Simulated scan of single mutants.
Amino acid sequence: MDIGMIGLGAMGRAMARNLAQAGHTVRAWNRSGGSDEGVTMVASPVDVFQSDAVLTMLSDDSVIRSVLLEPGVLKQAKPGLVHVVMSTISVAFARELVALHEAAGIDYVSAPVLGRPDVAAKGELNVLAAGAPHALTKVRPMLDVVSKRVWDMGADAPAANAAKIACNMMITMAIEAMAEAVVLTEANGLSRDQFFDLILNTLFGCRSYQVYSANIAAGQYEPGFKASLGLKDLRLAAEAAEQAGRSLPMLTAVHDRMAETVEAGMGDRDWSAMATLTIGPNAPARSSGPCL
């Protein structure tokens, strides 16, 4: 399959490499340049849109707008192309993209992903895909390459974006829940290792709790998924809640906590660094031990 790729950050680069290794022809454009083995770099986004399908992994709504919409790239796309947006974007912008692609005569699929760069490198992302059935069928072979599972979110593309935003919102709630639990348990003589060993082997034995309990246990928050991006995603969740006419109090709490994290100068650290504002920077951190 002739695949185009725009956005070669840590996630996009891993996906492009896996697609090339699987035998697909991959041509790519990246705002900051660069190259990768097996990938043909081209001069512009218009060149990328001469493929059978294009995956974009750009950071947010505004970047997609500036790279693709304002220069009129969609109107210059190869007929029959399917454009797959794998970024975490707002539900409202996804609806706008559906209409713009329809006007340009090309297909659109929302396919945000669950997983970090190490998961992308292994080709084990969870892909949340939604769009017209014929478009999903066409791009399914390449989504299978980059994923452990492709989750069919239906024919309405923005549903996939709502699901991704909701997932990220729930991860931040899990981080805050663990931080608050540490406050209670450490104040009463129980180590983080002991408590996390308990919850990971009883109530909460899932990847989000495993990954972020390890960060909290060790008191180490090296960049993984940046807090600044987490704040962006929580803003998208707040916007979606407002559009639905609903008040989500837990969302408000974690949004405010993440905003405090960024304001405290930790925007480039892993988003689990928000736990330090609840636990306190001077609280004792122990090795992660069995929670790994």
Rank of each mutant, 00 (worst) to 15 (best):
S35G: 08
V82R: 08
Y209G: 08
A163L: 10
R13G: 09
H255T: 15
M5W: 12
V98Q: 11
G267S: 09
R246H: 07
D61E: 09
A104N: 07
F196H: 03
V98K: 12
P133T: 14
A253Q: 15
G33V: 00
P249E: 14
F204Q: 04
G205L: 11
T261R: 14
S228R: 15
L55C: 10
A99N: 04
R31C: 00
V26P: 03
V91R: 10
A16I: 11
Q243V: 03
C291W: 11
A163G: 01
A241D: 15
V98P: 09
I175E: 14
K164E: 05
K122W: 00
V119P: 05
D107F: 01
D156G: 01
G80Y: 13
S66R: 07
L8D: 14
F196A: 11
V113K: 01
M169I: 03
A166V: 13
N282G: 12
G154D: 14
V182I: 08
Y212D: 12
V119C: 07
A227K: 09
M142A: 01
R17Y: 00
M142V: 03
P223I: 03
G105D: 14
S213N: 03
N18R: 11
V46C: 10
R192N: 06
E37F: 00
M86C: 15
G219M: 12
D144E: 14
S247Y: 02
L229I: 15
S87Y: 03
W271T: 05
G80R: 15
D233Q: 08
L128N: 04
D47S: 14
D107V: 04
A121E: 12
S87Q: 05
A181C: 08
A53G: 14
D156L: 02
G154I: 07
F204D: 03
D270N: 06
S32P: 01
P141Y: 02
P284C: 01
L8Q: 13
M266N: 13
L229D: 13
N201D: 08
V48K: 09
F196G: 06
A273W: 04
L203C: 05
T137M: 06
A159G: 03
V146W: 00
L69W: 04
A163Y: 09
A28K: 06
R13Y: 04
L248R: 06
T261P: 13
A28P: 02
D118Q: 10
S247I: 08
A237G: 13
L236M: 14
R192P: 01
E239P: 13
A135Q: 11
A16G: 06
M41T: 05
S191R: 05
A259F: 02
R27W: 00
D60V: 08
A285M: 11
A181D: 05
E186N: 11
L100S: 14
R31F: 00
Y221C: 04
M258G: 04
A104P: 08
A155L: 01
G154V: 06
